[in-house]
Design a protein around this nucleic acid. Structure first.
Lengths: 161, 161
DNA sequence: TAGGAACCCATTGACGTCCATTATTTCCCA
DNA sequence: TGGGAAATAATGGACGTCAATGGGTTCCTA
């Protein structure tokens, strides 16, 4: 079972190119999967995954009431999703939209979270990590729902413009 | 599985021509499918798809009570549908009716949503996107149990009501 | 015959590909 | 066990290709 684990920090060059960490690339290549990135719906970061997750979203949309707001939300995920072309050196090119959204500048932090990974502005990620840990101490541990979607109370700063 | 993903913003030139994004064209050409556009029932945008989707709508109508008002509504999708001719450079010409309906001026935004895509006035699309995101933050994500079973009730075949 | 649409060609700018360089780690052997 | 060599990874730059766009010309039709 190959998973995306650990964190890596890589540089974004002037052209917007970013090396995907070799261990993450290995996971995708072993499965011969292309890499998809999309903008997180809830946090200022990018999400990376393989095609199966994209397929799940598409199927979910087709099976739902097409007039519901939930469908509109899922469509937003798909519309922001890009199949990333990885160059010979294992790099991807981040669109201006992606860079703006995650507020990246010259460094990007890859955080492996199992079946997918996230890309963060390093400072923001660490900030979020310490917050999460201190919240765990004060509020107690969250229930560990493996395979379930995380539903978080609307507590933290709004990334709205 | 080739899908319509990501968003592209293209210019409508003085002659009314609009380039279909190369990735979208590739999906259609791979299947040797013509491109159909029709007016969205729910939003001020155009919907684009291949013939199989049109067929699904026709079948859905055939299986419904032909006197119901829903059928009349669905029929307007079909009557607004046009098979688009794509020129040698991959461009289409939008009818005045389409342009009026989506309130387009000189730019058009293509938003891929899996098996189909939409064409929007860019500003309006972004507005809709931020709405979807703030809704996701406050209401939580639509249930998408990735890696787990989907929550969809087993008897609600088509998500319509 | 005029207007618009289909076709053809030119331009340009972005991006994908290829190659060079540097840094870091691993491994082998002295 | 330490040093050096080789492999892997990350980074930077150069260049060719293709998509997007614009303009011109021909053809059809109203």
């Amino acid at each position: 079972m190959d998973l995306f684990l650990s964190t890596f920090e890589n540089r974004i060059d002037k052209k917007g190119r970013l090396s995907v960490p070799a261990p993450f690339r290995a996971v995708l290549e072993r499965r011969r999967d292309p890499l998809y990135l999309f903008k997180s719906l809830t946090e200022p970061c990018l999400e990376g995954c393989g095609p199966e997750r994209i397929g799940q979203i598409v199927d979910a949309i087709d099976s739902m009431d097409s007039l519901s707001s939930e469908v509109a939300t899922l469509q937003t995920m798909l519309s922001s999703a890009q199949e990333m072309k990885v160059d010979g050196e294992g790099r991807i090119m981040l669109s201006a939209d992606f860079i703006d959204f995650a507020e990246l500048d010259d460094m990007a932090l890859f955080a492996g979270i199992g079946r997918s990974f996230q890309i963060w502005l390093p400072v923001r990620y660490r900030e979020r990590e310490t917050n999460a840990r201190s919240r765990a101490k004060s509020d107690g541990l969250p229930s560990l729902r493996l395979g379930g979607g995380s539903r978080r109370p609307p507590d933290d700063e709004d990334g709205r413009r």
